[in-house]
Each structure stands twice: as structure tokens, then as C-alpha cells.
């Protein structure tokens, strides 16, 4: 069964890589995040293929998906839905908003006001929404893929650290390689290709994978390493705000998922290293100009990957 799942995962990755060219690592991380039941934050400049990736992911997973373009005048009701008076029945009935879907794509999340942002983030945390005193459970699985522009761009409301912490990964796609770019320019690729994306995983496979993840073995030696990393984020001289326990749990879970994607039954240091920047980059805050992913990489390089020395 596991081999079938692995094949399916492999196939999904191929399918995704056909859409997003030359970004195998990022694509694999994005899939890892979704398979580990985490919410994904894609941060990049406009036009780098964030939305395409989000689209493709939802298609490959075969989950129903809705997308909202976040703007500064977006209201929470636009996301969650509202009670509407039904004249024939003379009652108020709840009209579900776009958030009631398995994959919710929040495009340009940081363009919305904090009010709308927090409505979404609440849903991410609780898995349910409350309207007019009634609680509505969101469908399972429920993933949020949010894209955002770098915060230096005008007209954005930066997400506070506490809300960033709820995203398991933050990824940037970055500029494509020249050769890949040339292929893009030659045409044929792009959004039109999205229509050809095949659904490979179904809900059942997804659940099976999610059940497999906790079974991936995490040895004491590896946890020593993880703890050394965490400790380093908390005491590094460049670091002001370290990794939270939630972040640490996300690190281990996603490393397990990554190992699964590699077809391994146990986690190795390289699995942790592969996901570390995506997990830690948006959670830690630096003291100086070294920030985000760069700071995370710095920490990764200053921690011994072997041995069982306790964190200092």
C-alpha cells in the first residue's frame, strides 16, 4: 500500500513540476506541507507563479477549491458567508461563503485589512466559523494556501508574528533559471496548462498518507539535533524572537512528512534541514538586517548536525 502511495506522490510531483518549471524543491515542500495537514504561505513578488502553484496543488489533490482575491475592502462576511433573509420561508438562512471548501486559496492575503485577515486565521486555527452565534464546521480536510506580496510592497497590511505562526511553511518561488525562463517565453506553458492537470491523489489516499506520517520514526539522536536547532534560534546573537513550541512541533511533523516523501521510514538530519528554512523563516525575528529565510539558514549552518550533545 505504501508503495502505491509513494508512486501516487511521485506522480503528483511530476504533474506539478510540469506546471511549475524548474522549482522541484519548492514544489516538493509545498506538497509536503499540504500532506502534513499544514497551511501554506507563498510569499513572492507578483507574477512568480504563486497562484499557479496553488491552483495546481488543488487540482492534483482533487479537492474542491475556492479562491478569493483579498483586497483592502474585503469583509469577513465575504469569506465566511452571511445570514440572508429568505422571503418565501420568512427565515434567515446562512449562505456559506467561499471558505467552505477543502482548499481555500487566499490570494494576496496581506492586501486585506487585519479584520478580514483575522477572520481567515480564526478559521485556520479552529477548523470552524461562528456566524450569528451559530457554529459551522468547515469541511475536512481544510487547507489554506495563502499568497502574499513581500511586505515592502505598497498597499499591504503585514501579518503579525502570532498569525504567521499558524502557517506551517512559508515558501518563496524565486526567479526561474534562464533556461526555464526561455522555455516559459517560448510559450505553451502557463495557466492554460492548468486545465490539463490530472487529479492523482484522492481524499482517501490523502488520509492514508496523513495516518502514515506519525509512524515515521524520530530517534533520540535526531530530537537532540532538533532541540539544538531550536535552542540556537532562541539564543543566537542575531536572533531576537526564537522558535515557538508550535513551530518546533511543525518542524518535526514536516520533517517526518519529508522523509515519507523520500520513501524512508525514519527521519534523517537532512530531512530536518530540508524543511527548516520553510518552517522557521517566517517565525523567527532577527535583531539586525539578517531576517527570515536568511537568518534561518544562518542558524542551520551554526548547529552541529551529528552527535547528542545537549543544547547549551
Amino acid at each position: 500500500m505504501a508503495t502505491r502511495l509513494l508512486q501516487e506522490i511521485e506522480a503528483s510531483l511530476n504533474e506539478l513540476n510540469n506546471i511549475i518549471l524548474g522549482k522541484e524543491q519548492q514544489v516538493r515542500l509545498a506538497l509536503t506541507c499540504i500532506l502534513a495537514s499544514g497551511h501554506l504561505l507563498l510569499e513572492d513578488l507578483p507574477g512568480m507563479g504563486k497562484t499557479t502553484l496553488a491552483h495546481a496543488l488543488s487540482k492534483v489533490l482533487g479537492l474542491d477549491y475556492k479562491r478569493i482575491q483579498f483586497t483592502s475592502d474585503l469583509l469577513p462576511a465575504d469569506l465566511i458567508g452571511a445570514s440572508v433573509f429568505d422571503a418565501t420561508a420568512s427565515t434567515f438562512s446562512f449562505h456559506r461563503g467561499p471558505i467552505f471548501s477543502s482548499i481555500f486559496l487566499a490570494d494576496e492575503l496581506n492586501r486585506a485589512t487585519p479584520k478580514a485577515q483575522s477572520a481567515l486565521l480564526e478559521a485556520m486555527e479552529e477548523g470552524q466559523v461562528s456566524v450569528d452565534g451559530e457554529t459551522h464546521v468547515l469541511p475536512q480536510p481544510f487547507f489554506v494556501i495563502a499568497t502574499q506580496n513581500p511586505q515592502s510592497q505598497s498597499g499591504t497590511f503585514p501579518l503579525p508574528e502570532s498569525q504567521l505562526d499558524r502557517f506551517m511553511f512559508r515558501l518563496s518561488l524565486g526567479y526561474p533559471d534562464p533556461s526555464v525562463e526561455r522555455a516559459l517565453l517560448k510559450g505553451g506553458q502557463g495557466r492554460s496548462a492548468l486545465n490539463n492537470v490530472q487529479q492523482i491523489l484522492n481524499t482517501e489516499s490523502l488520509q492514508q498518507i496523513q495516518r502514515l506520517i506519525p509512524q515515521i520514526k524520530v530517534s533520540d539522536t535526531l530530537l537532540d539535533y532538533v532541540q539544538r536547532l531550536i535552542a540556537q534560534t532562541r539564543q543566537d546573537e542575531l536572533c531576537q524572537l526564537g522558535l515557538s513550541p508550535r513551530g518546533a512541533i511543525a518542524l518535526v511533523t514536516s520533517a517526518q512528512c519529508w522523509a515519507l516523501l523520500q520513501g524512508r521510514s525514519h527521519v534523517m538530519p537532512e530531512d530536518v534541514q530540508a524543511v527548516f528554512v520553510a518552517v522557521a523563516g517566517h517565525r523567527i525575528v532577527g535583531k539586525k538586517e539578517t531576517q527570515g529565510d536568511q537568518l534561518a539558514r544562518h542558524i542551520l549552518h551554526s548547529v552541529d548536525a551529528v552527535g547528542n550533545r545537549a543544547p547549551v
Binding site: M268, P269, E270, Q273, L300, S302, V303, A305, V306
Partner: peptide, 23 residues
């Protein structure tokens, strides 16, 4: 393992701090 690394160091092959064993 640290001895192993030390031996290889003598032959001019140095392990970076953050390198995992496989790498």
C-alpha cells in the same frame, strides 16, 4: 563518528558543522 571525521580531516576532507552524515 567524531574520530571518523578527525581521520578524514587528516586526509584533507573536512566536515562542515551543519553537514549531515549522508551529505
Amino acid at each position: 563518528y567524531r574520530k571518523f571525521c578527525q581521520h578524514l580531516e587528516k586526509y584533507g576532507v573536512n566536515k562542515k558543522l551543519s553537514q549531515s552524515p549522508t551529505e
